[in-house]
Design a protein around this nucleic acid. Sequence first.
DNA 1: CGATTTTTAGAGTAATTACTCTAGGAGTCA
DNA 2: TGACTCCTAGAGTAATTACTCTAAAAATCG
Lengths: 232, 232
Amino acid sequence: MTDTKTRILDTALNLFNRSGERNVTTNHIAEGLGISPGNLYYHYRNKAAIVAALFERYQEQIRDLLTVPEGPLTWQDKMRYFEGILESMWQARFLHRDLAHFLHQDAALRRDYKLFVQDSLERGLLIYRSLRDSGLIEASDEELRGLLVNTWVLAASWPGFTHGLNPDASGDEALDRTLLRQGIYQIICLEAPYLRGEALDHLDAMKQEFRTGDTTMDLLFAAAEALPARRA
Amino acid sequence: MTDTKTRILDTALNLFNRSGERNVTTNHIAEGLGISPGNLYYHYRNKAAIVAALFERYQEQIRDLLTVPEGPLTWQDKMRYFEGILESMWQARFLHRDLAHFLHQDAALRRDYKLFVQDSLERGLLIYRSLRDSGLIEASDEELRGLLVNTWVLAASWPGFTHGLNPDASGDEALDRTLLRQGIYQIICLEAPYLRGEALDHLDAMKQEFRTGDTTMDLLFAAAEALPARRA
DNA sequence: CGATTTTTAGAGTAATTACTCTAGGAGTCA
DNA sequence: TGACTCCTAGAGTAATTACTCTAAAAATCG
């Protein structure tokens, strides 16, 4: 059995993601893993400390993901970046959901977060440049910066966006995966115009792989498409 | 003097945007416009009703904005859409900030919101198609759908994203405008690859107009760019 | 084993806050 | 003027919830 301290984090993360940090009390967390509230406060001095620890964990994951390897990058590398980042952001989706509030409350977190975003975008730029050097992408530095910011914001917001439309989905692992894959599809759309070479050759296949026909997109555009169809 | 009911909404909106709905009590709102808590509850039966009313207002704004006019669209029309939508979303930024929570709490709101997003994207698609008919954009329907969803998510998330990085900005009207303009710049980046004809001719000018040199972007990439520069 | 430290339990508290209730002012219409 | 409705005040309440405190169990170590 892992130690209580990390078990608290795991339970809290699950509950936060499912119900939102605001709706999860410290008593819920304690109850959730069968310990007393007092015990919980022995390990974390307050609720904010739990959030901060989860934030730390998340930051490390992203940082690790965004390291640039030595040699030239392949289009498979690129896909791995997307999947990894969106996956991490998905796992910590409660964070982005209530990020504004956390930053509002905690000055230290605010500073850390700013540095974190800066660092991440910096690393992202290096990766994109490396992809450009490999001939997989064609874009000016300015275009890369714009693309990068959009990718970041999209990835960070996607969990919240889909969860808003499918609020009952949480807990349904299968549907969760589907929505996540749809997010990767949207990121692919984002950079599709800049792809070249092998990356371009595989674009259609990648789109195919990550577009999930029967969920978000169809759901979103159901009204628009269904009406003319029914008329026929 | 406008009636109390709308003054409550205006005050609540301001406070919500500045501090987040979670941190604004009904007493704060009452105090904010110099009425008693009892009076506030005479006009709105609870806090959620205030949020719902603000949501209603916001929905109407967006719906009005996203109507497709008769004739062919110009690239100026397109810019007006962007500015209008981002402006509306900016004004109601507290909504998107805490959207997940509101949807979690209120089933009716959940249903309304889903329909609202569907309707908005449907309207957006019609607009994009109209722009394509005018020869200002070249893209398949599938590409348009992907672009549209990305635009929507970006516009909805941008206020929260920038506010997270500049939490002290709220209230500073000038900085607010700057961040908002930067959001429009990001949206321009999003669709830049699909522009044709006149829209393409004006792309650089538009980028120039909305890129604000000394804030977000530079801030975000300061670390990446400044280091090599200093070394020289 | 005995001593000391770490971990746990769980009852309890203080503060916050959404909301209620009663009573009174202010307009309106006969 | 009087009756009636709309609007407002503000003290008060009930419920929630983050957090505390004491004491006991469990682990560690000499």
